[in-house]
Computed example of a mutant assay.
Amino acid sequence: MASRLLLSFLLFLLLSLTAAHKHNLKQKYSHLHFYFHDSITGRNATAVPVTKLAAGAHPQSYFGIIAIMDDPLTEGPELNSTLLGRAQGLYAATGQEEVSLLMTMNLAFTAGKYNGSVLSVLGRNQPLHPVREMPIVGGTGLFRFARGYVLARTHCLDLDTLDATVEYDVHVIHYGKILDV
């Protein structure tokens, strides 16, 4: 089983490199900086829990809760600053002892240079830690063949509602859009 997985991964890597070479693409590095606004309360909630706390779970870990999100990404920390896109996906509380989230989301850009492009993030987020690192596992549009990482820092967190604004520093290597597809 492990050898099949390794073989599949190596084949995927070879095909990716061949496609980039075939289209004579140059590798690019981009640094993006924006704010992620997650609101699970109120009339304009952007994240909706779809499960409840697991039976017997430590209440401060939120273990078992899954939320679907469509959170705005803005240029500044204020919700009314320039909208750059949306973080769409889900997060699941996977830690039994501490708050630890599995994040699976698309950062879909709707403005500026990256309008129409998407970065896909899949990784662990421990929101009570000062800095969290999550991997970028792919992308579309200008972010084709993307890989990199996101550094997340909580800008503000309301402990009563759990609504949060999170600063995102994104470092990504990509090839850009292939025009002849």
Rank of each mutant, 00 (worst) to 15 (best):
S3D: 10
F9W: 02
L11R: 13
F12V: 07
L13P: 12
L13Y: 08
L13F: 07
T18Q: 06
A19W: 03
H21N: 04
K22D: 04
K26I: 12
Y29R: 06
S30M: 12
H31W: 04
H31K: 13
H33G: 05
Y35C: 07
H37E: 05
N44F: 06
T46Y: 02
T46E: 07
P49L: 12
V50M: 14
L53P: 07
L53C: 03
A55T: 11
A55G: 06
G56F: 04
P59Y: 03
S61G: 10
S61E: 11
Y62C: 08
F63H: 09
F63R: 08
G64N: 05
I65C: 13
A67N: 15
A67M: 14
D71H: 08
D71S: 13
L73N: 15
T74F: 15
E75N: 15
L79A: 14
S81N: 13
L84H: 14
L84Y: 13
G85M: 00
L90W: 04
Y91W: 14
Y91N: 03
E98R: 09
E98S: 12
V99M: 10
S100T: 15
S100V: 09
L101A: 03
L101W: 06
L101V: 01
T104L: 00
M105Q: 10
N115W: 12
N115I: 05
V118R: 10
V118E: 00
V118S: 00
V118G: 02
L119F: 01
L119C: 02
S120P: 02
V121M: 00
L122R: 00
N125G: 10
Q126I: 13
P127W: 03
P127C: 11
P127M: 02
L128N: 10
P130I: 01
R132A: 07
E133A: 03
M134W: 07
V137T: 05
V137D: 09
G138I: 01
G139S: 03
T140P: 11
T140C: 03
G141Q: 03
A146H: 06
R147F: 13
G148E: 10
Y149C: 11
H155K: 05
L157Q: 01
D160A: 14
D163I: 11
A164H: 08
A164Q: 13
A164D: 05
T165D: 03
E167N: 02
D169R: 05
D169Q: 07
V170T: 14
V172A: 11
I173G: 02
I173Q: 04
H174D: 07
G176H: 01
D180C: 11
V181H: 09
V181G: 06
